[in-house]
Every structure is written in structure tokens, then in C-alpha cells.
Amino acid sequence: MAARNVSSAVRLPPFQTLLDAHGRDVHRFLVASVGRIDADDCYQETWIAALRAYPKLKDASNLRSWIFTVAHRKVIDHIRARRRVAVPVGVVPEAATETATEAPATTDEELWARVRELPAKQRTALALRYVVDAGYDEISSVMGTSEDAARRNVHEALKRLRTEYQP
């Protein structure tokens, strides 16, 4: 059937295919970055922001990196907003423990709660590396840093965790 072409430059796949391919990883990344309670809101905001920008996208060659860049921005927004309301330190992980149902729940929440106390860049790099298996090239492209900086962030994060972490 005949119809006009909306975008001539880039062939964008139906948005649902992005959601199907990356939705779960984005959500896991957000749980690791902002905690289980706030992850759902960040998740919806991430996909709405992506949907808004989607038709104007100039390069569709790496949509996974693109969607994680959007998610990363939402994490930064979230942390800034959080800082403004000045939540007292120590109350954050409380509700998270009751939602975890799988067996090693406590350790899971403990380790990742500690990750969330790392400086933002280290935390994001670590989440990308170990939650969604991103390589350093992808981490650098999502976070807008060099590959060396990505490697350093992960390395520093591991070093900090190691000083405290005894499984």
C-alpha cells in the first residue's frame, strides 16, 4: 500500500523492538543505580524521554548505547533531585529488603546497597559493567568519557568495595 516516508535519513525500527530487546537490562541497571523503590519511576521516565527523542534520532547504529545514555541521564537527574530533598543517610535501603524474594536476598541488597553509596560515576560504571555486561567502550560511550576513564571508574569502585566487602 502506498504511504509517505516519515524519516528519510535513518531507518528506525518500531520502538517496541527496543523495549523488548533492552527493557529488562535498563531496569536492572536502574535498580542497581537508584535502588528498587525509585527504579520504576526512573524506568518509565527513561523510556518516555527516549520515545520523545526517537523520531529525530540521527544514528540508529547503536540503539542499546543510546538507551543506556538516556537511562544514565535519568539517574543523574534522580540523584540531583534526591540531594535537594536531603534524605538523611542510612534510611534508604530499608524498604528494599522486603521486596527481595530470592534466596540470597540479604547479601544481594547489602552488596548493591554499598554500591549505591559509591560516587555516582563509579557506581554507574560498575552497574554497566557487572549488571548489563557492558564493555569499556560501551561504558565510555554511555557516560561520555574516555575508555581509560571508564576503566578507572570501575577499578576505583572495585578497590573501594574490596576494602569493606567480606562475603
Binding site: 509517505r4 516519515v6 531507518r11 528506525l12 525500527p13 517496541q16 526517537y54
Partner: peptide, 10 residues
């Protein structure tokens, strides 16, 4: 549908 109407499909 993505090419003829819009890629904003869910």
C-alpha cells in the same frame, strides 16, 4: 508501520 506512519510504536 514504522516507516509509513511513525516509529513510535508500542
Amino acid at each position: 508501520l514504522a516507516t509509513t506512519l511513525s516509529p513510535r510504536i508500542l
